[in-house]
Design a binder for these strands. Sequence first.
DNA 1: TTCATATGAATGAATG
DNA 2: CATTCATTCATATGAA
Lengths: 215, 215
Amino acid sequence: MEEERRGGGEGVAEGVLYVKVMTDEQMEVLRRQISVYATICEQLVEMHKAVTAQQDSLAGMRLGSLYCDPLMTPGGHKITARQRWTPTPMQLQILESIFDQGNGTPSKQKIKEITLELSQHGQISETNVYNWFQNRRARSKRKQTAHLPNNSESEIEADDESPNEKKPKSEKHTHENLPRTDALSIRGTQTNSDVLSVDPEPNLRQGMYASNDSS
Amino acid sequence: MEEERRGGGEGVAEGVLYVKVMTDEQMEVLRRQISVYATICEQLVEMHKAVTAQQDSLAGMRLGSLYCDPLMTPGGHKITARQRWTPTPMQLQILESIFDQGNGTPSKQKIKEITLELSQHGQISETNVYNWFQNRRARSKRKQTAHLPNNSESEIEADDESPNEKKPKSEKHTHENLPRTDALSIRGTQTNSDVLSVDPEPNLRQGMYASNDSS
DNA sequence: TTCATATGAATGAATG
DNA sequence: CATTCATTCATATGAA
């Protein structure tokens, strides 16, 4: 599927000319920047849709066409694929055994040692190890949360913008959910004359960042 | 030539020896181009905001009906309901710019100003800003533990079966004064080319964070 | 192809 | 501030 991730070098008859024409860092930068204005463009599309919809109601004409089909979508950037680390079976085994030792919280020093150990079996970085443990613990904990809560109620979550509800997200968020809108939130809410009204309604918590005035 | 000028950091990642065909200058060119586009888009958004707002406010004379509820549904609860704040690209840009300014720890007063500024681009609270800076600093500092004093990685190792890569986050740069333009600040920076001089909303950035009155 | 899932990585928020 | 937690995003892989 992704054999053409480096589509830059076409015309190769035989052999996979496998060269990177940009460093990951460069690619990351570009990706970021492109993503920025791609999102903005998406907002523009939404606005245009809104505007044309108004006109539509007046003239009765319909011209709702999407004129924005970028090469990538904010939901899935297909610009580049960043390869991610994959532990070798050997590494995985070692990691698993360390994890099973109960020393659930490997400190930084541990991480270094483990990384050094694992680097004998393949490329690896401390970040990889760190992430692995983080994920391992988090996911093992989530598995336990699948305790068949048998919630007899049916909380009707009508607002499922995500049709795929396979992920067992039966967790319980014990914190207040702030009515957060998505990235392109400028289209909703008040597009009235009060578009730019600052809504300084911060969900200020108890402590915040400064209990007192440090001035 | 200058294909190896940039101290990107990585030259050989895994088995694959790749060359850098993009120079700093090329990169800079792309960056600036994208920056221009981003700025244009940003201004377009503002323009459309003004337009839609105007239409809406003039609905009494034009439409005469409150039919301005096409797709947005001001009270649309079904857009997305996330518990966690996610900065919009524009907000991110602004935050990054501020962060790169080296003004380090923003004081409480700064936070307020920044929050006010960012609220023009989406829902945000002071806590969000504070957390962002906290995380930003902490994580950028964690980018220093991946190199060994005598780590000669000039060797091309192709023995491993794990095609992986380090984690070069885009912000490898410490907040040192980069000679290049900052990460496209699509915000206040009035487009030098004055592409679309439509700025009917002077109150977009009233205070900004320029007013440094911290204690 | 498309969908579903596992999982590495990113990150906002919380805790010390 | 330094670490950790919790959640989400993105990608690799396999099944339908």
